[in-house]
Write a protein that binds this DNA or RNA. Structure first.
Lengths: 211, 211
DNA sequence: TGTAATAACGAACGAACGTTAGTTTTAAAT
DNA sequence: ATTTAAAACTAACGTTCGTTCGTTATTACA
């Protein structure tokens, strides 16, 4: 059978498993969710899960692959970045902060961010991903950005890596604050607040380093 | 019996259970450690655990109570803080950073910090503790500190709460970086590095806000 | 030395877990 | 209408889990 839902069109079962697993993993953590619970929520027997995924771990892997792909699709192309810097650091920071928030800003991505924040501790694959893609890579990008700003004599000639950490560590802090400590709060409201906080932080930093 | 170790003096069993549970919880997380595993490491049968603790959860509770007590014992008395500020912001920041590091700096506390960082996601009691004692309370203290510095005209009259976040969010970031992402690295070495980073951050901040 | 409390033990319980096997139903393709 | 493959089902396997029970051994104290 391709779709056992009589009449009403509906998502394929594999997608339902994906969505519900994500929902449950994000809420309770991978280990705290049983295959039986996923199956119950989907509306099938637990053994049917294995017609779509090799095992429970494969569901998590598929979610992470999707997340990594989504992240790789976002982000500012390099050419645009260079052009944007020319317009001055203020414009660049505002755009940068908005883009950072935008990556997080869909309901589905919210759940994956939360899942990442939970499973980073338990899952080496996710932890390595976090370190590389969510910390080291952005830091490098911002280091280059500050380097360019220094070369263009927009800001004082300080250590660009220090500046990258001064700027970006605040974003990690906001991530930690929401996804770890305040996840019960309204997502949209907090994101608006976080964007404002990030903008204020950038303004503060810029005031300290501009020429 | 009080101590079944023939001849050689040794820790009471209850303490052994405490220490080994902490070790295992910090390494693998609460749920990933079984009562059987604890018992095996202690060198007794799993049923004997229940002669010392009501259940598995009670072991975690005891560890957290100990941790909270230890934290409450540390920290700078208020009188000393006031006196320290008088000596100028540079001295205060250096001392503040050193004390922040000092709280983390024993091998036993290292494990508890790691445990907190793992279980914050799963355990509401720990999460509430983190929010209150490790974020909100320090932020309030630093807000008051900056307020005092402003009143003494040591720094520019900026929003003291903003300054508290600018300063302390970096500490949270360092916590996150080590205990979540880099826990395999050498503790002592990282703490020295973190102290240096925190000092640099304070210096950077101070440069931006001093009068 | 006898007694009582403490803490060890072996064995088992009931529940939950991930997963597999074999079978039947469904729906599309011929 | 028949065939075929996908996807549902029922049933169960083997483990592991936290915990409890009843019993035995040890130790401190009278």
């Amino acid at each position: 059978m391709k779709n056992q839902n009589k009449g009403n069109p509906s998502k394929p079962t594999k997608e339902k498993i994906f969505d519900i697993s994500l929902e449950l993993f994000a809420a309770k953590g991978f280990n705290a969710v049983s295959v039986r619970e996923i199956a119950r929520e989907v509306g099938i027997r637990e053994s049917s899960i294995y017609n779509h995924y090799k095992n429970k771990e494969a569901i998590l892997d598929t979610i992470m692959d999707y997340f990594i792909y989504q992240l790789s699709q976002s982000g500012l192309p390099k050419d645009d970045a260079e052009a944007l810097i020319e317009q001055g650091p203020e414009v660049f920071f505002e755009t940068g902060a908005k883009m950072y928030i935008k990556q997080i800003n869909t309901p589905q991505m919210e759940k994956i961010w939360r899942l990442v924040s939970i499973e980073t501790y338990h899952n080496k694959k996710i932890r390595d991903f976090f370190k590389k893609e969510l910390l080291e890579e952005p830091i490098n990008v911002w280091e280059n950005t500050f380097q360019m700003m220094i070369e263009k004599k927009m800001i004082k000639p300080l250590n660009p890596r220090t500046l990258a950490y001064e700027y970006f560590s605040f974003a990690i802090f906001l991530f930690f604050e929401y996804f770890v400590l305040e996840y019960d709060k309204d997502f949209k409201t907090y994101m608006d607040l976080a964007q404002e906080k990030m903008a204020n932080h950038a303004e503060f930093l810029l005031e300290a380093i501009k020429m």
